[in-house]
Design a protein around this nucleic acid. Structure first.
Lengths: 210, 210
DNA sequence: AAACTGTTGTGAAAAATATCACATAAATCA
DNA sequence: TGATTTATGTGATATTTTTCACAACAGTTT
């Protein structure tokens, strides 16, 4: 079965393909994708073979065909709606983030407990948290982002789960316990920076001792 | 050698430990950390053993000691300064992100090409991109975040590299080519969402066919 | 039409990562 | 003080992921 990094790579291939298409590429080779996505060409082909995507021996892949095949796998054949809970720094950034729409991802509403943040008269309304359940049911929302402070995150996740949300991206710096049949992915900005700090320092030490 | 996920786990253990310390824990067991960081206890101990961290047979680990050992590994024994390039949605969110300081990570300046965004009269100034090299040299900055549009990202990375920056967190939705001796880590918001979408749909299908 | 070239596709091998099983040590109890 | 309990620490094993090596094939050249 496909694993997490494999799907991440598919997304990257798709991005690369879209970019290459704007350059008027008609067919691409696994080597092209490997270069752009910074992996090996075998990795590209192995990933494709896992999903039954095949090209033409010696002829590479037809770019349009490939894009639509990958898009289908990633659920990009239809617009995927999602909501954001917690309109702080990150929540606000997501509300204004331009490239979701280009990628068939649509942020349809934000939620917050702070009534000063509520606002219904805009394209993407900010609603009180109490309306979450109703909104999710009426609009058939499956995906959501958590951008509340750490202490509130687990509670918000359970709220989302009860509302019927099935997939969650969590920015709160805490490792959430995923409810059954609910996919949760954590992005922790400090952790990411700490990772970079470690490997940078490590590389320096290794370099110095070389 | 330690790998990327191992360091991410160390960060998570540290977060967990700090949380447990506020609850007045004095010692912790690998099982406690496993629960909070959502891994197995063997994994915790294996990770520790990789860095020569040892506890007391039967007695677990002294929390203060453990925090300082992990902190030292992650470079948290001193404040790590970093800058942000591109003061758009994400850049702004980072400027106001509260929990960096708690974690010995200090955002010291932002940079942008748009002169309307420049502002020197605040704690974290926003400076013109031309001043990057000078600022980085004078303030001995080693780390930076890229939050510019995709088409500008590679160029900005090379600019940062020439200025002397060694570790970069990239939010631009493009896979950057890392210069030699420079650590680059990509966070792509769309890709993360696509990942969630895929696995949510997949779980649904698997559930339905069960 | 035969030889050649360059790319895909994949079984097998290797490398990386995580888990298991259990020896070892420290504390407690009888 | 010997037996028992409960964690740690780690070699061995299993699993996952990536890379290697090369057969298969479709064009292209001679």
């Amino acid at each position: 079965m496909a694993n997490k990094s494999c799907i991440i790579r598919l997304s990257m291939y798709r991005n690369a393909l879209i970019r290459l298409k704007t350059l008027n590429f008609v067919k691409v080779f696994s080597d092209n994708l490997a270069d752009v996505a910074r992996v090996t060409s075998v990795q590209v082909r192995k990933d494709f073979s896992l999903f039954g995507i095949s090209g033409n021996r010696r002829g590479g892949y037809l770019i349009d065909e490939l894009i639509s095949q990958i898009s289908a796998i990633l659920g990009k054949d239809k617009v995927q709606k999602f909501i954001v809970i917690g309109i702080g720094n990150i929540g606000k950034a997501l509300l204004n983030y331009p490239s979701f729409k280009k990628n068939e991802i649509e942020l349809v509403a934000g939620f917050d407990i702070d009534m000063n943040k509520h606002n219904r008269d805009v394209e993407v309304p900010i609603l009180p948290l109490e309306e979450l359940g109703k909104f999710v049911a009426e609009n058939e929302i499956k995906f959501g982002v958590i951008s509340v402070p750490d202490f509130a995150a687990q509670e918000v996740l359970e709220l989302m789960f009860r509302a019927g949300i099935k997939g969650v991206l969590n920015f709160a710096p805490i490792c959430l316990k995923e409810p059954p049949d609910c996919v949760v992915r954590n992005i922790n900005l400090e952790t990411e920076l700490e990772n970079i700090i470690y490997f940078t320092n490590f590389a320096e030490q290794a370099g110095a001792s070389r």
